[in-house]
């Protein structure tokens, strides 16, 4: 599978799932595609349909309404498919962890393969994270 993983590492199509975040991570994700950071250099492309996705970029705390949908989305993604949690929210709940409307355990909803903490993480930080994923694939 080594040869295939190398192809996969060079052609990551990301799908952006925003599960009740504060919007900032989403904006920074889009920022990654724009001239300053230009993720297309690594072959990374933002796609609109989950069927085309290789990586789900998840941000936010998964409130009770959006949680089941995220789960559904993950099941609908063609495997192999990786999940990257962007920001502090999927990792720890940030300042929203006291709320009454969040999903208790994100791990049960969606298996997150890589966390990129930060509120919001800097674009450089996200690139570093994604490069880590690429390295794992290439190894």
């Amino acid at each position: 599978m080594g040869w295939y993983n190398k192809r996969l590492a060079k052609s990551i199509w990301v799908f952006h799932v925003s599960a009740s975040p504060c919007n900032n991570c989403d904006i920074e994700i889009l920022d990654l595609l724009t001239p300053r950071y230009d993720l297309e250099r690594f072959g990374i492309k933002l796609v609109g349909s989950i069927r085309h996705a290789d990586v789900l970029l998840v941000s936010g705390i998964f409130n009770q309404k959006v949680g089941p949908r995220v789960q559904q989305i993950y099941q609908q993604a063609p495997k192999p498919c990786f999940v990257v949690g962007i920001g502090t929210c999927p990792a720890s709940g940030c300042c929203f962890k006291d709320s009454y409307n969040i999903s208790k355990n994100i791990k049960d909803i969606i298996p997150i393969n890589l966390y990129i903490p930060g509120c919001p993480p800097k674009p450089e930080n996200m690139i570093a994270g994604i490069v880590k994923l690429v390295e794992v694939l290439n190894a």
């Binding site: 996969l8 290789d54 063609p78 495997k79 192999p80």
Partner: peptide, 10 residues
């Protein structure tokens, strides 16, 4: 790369 990657997906 895109083409060969898609061949291996579900």
């Amino acid at each position: 790369n895109d083409f060969f990657k898609l061949l291996g997906k579900e």
